[in-house]
Amino acid sequence: MTDASLVVTDLHVEFSGFVAVGGVSFDAHPGEVRFLIGPNGAGKTTCIDAITGLTRATGSARLGGKELLGRPVHKIVRLGVGRTFQTASVFDELTVLQNLDIAAGRHRRSASLLRARRGTDGSIEQALEETGLAGEFATPSGILSHGQKQWLEIAMLLVQDAKVLLLDEPVAGMSQDERTATGELLQRIAAKRIVLVVEHDMDFMRRFATRVTVLHQGRVLSQGAVAEVQADPKVQEVYLGTAGAATTAAMSVVPEAAAGTHQRKED
């Protein structure tokens, strides 16, 4: 089982003395929609940053036995780790198709980059269908709706053939229908891939999670199936006793600036 799994052990991230992630361990396997939840500032995004090489970390993050920590970003990607950012970041000036084409390109030889695109890869058509963007392939991605941009990002991970999808708040700012569609999409694609969703919307988590890890102040507060975690008194305390209140609070939270810019709010 472990040869296709993501295993994070004792992950530790410090920002000039401030411990953002202090010894977090969890694992994720293909076939489950794995959730990482916690209040704002809990260290969820930082965990993803560490796994993807954006932030220096100690401890271990292994994919199929291969250590990820310490490798440069693009090498980690080439091992099959893909991610999205809290703020959708697609190439606004390029069309949906061009975005996907670039995502599919890392398997191509450098020389073929010098030619213009002729036709569409099968994987691209499949991803367009899967994410419901088939009608938008010629649209400049800058004018897509917020939800469509998030789906485009997921589609890019699909054509990139990522084995691990790390999704940072994929449903933030989405309507209820879009959330449902996204959740179902995640369940479909999780069949053969590792899907790890960072979220603080408890309602969305409850509907689509198989297993959950709750982070609080950089540490694992609770871990297990949805029901177990919800029954955990420590979790209830962090979430003000009721999940409903947390959901309402979470709904009002505006996504932070893109992780890539390193502009974070202290909260």
Partner: peptide, 22 residues
Amino acid sequence: SRFGELLVATRDAEERVRFLGY
């Protein structure tokens, strides 16, 4: 060419390009 598209993508969102494995 595809390189041209990749170049524009790099200009507009360098970090994102890195996370696509380039």
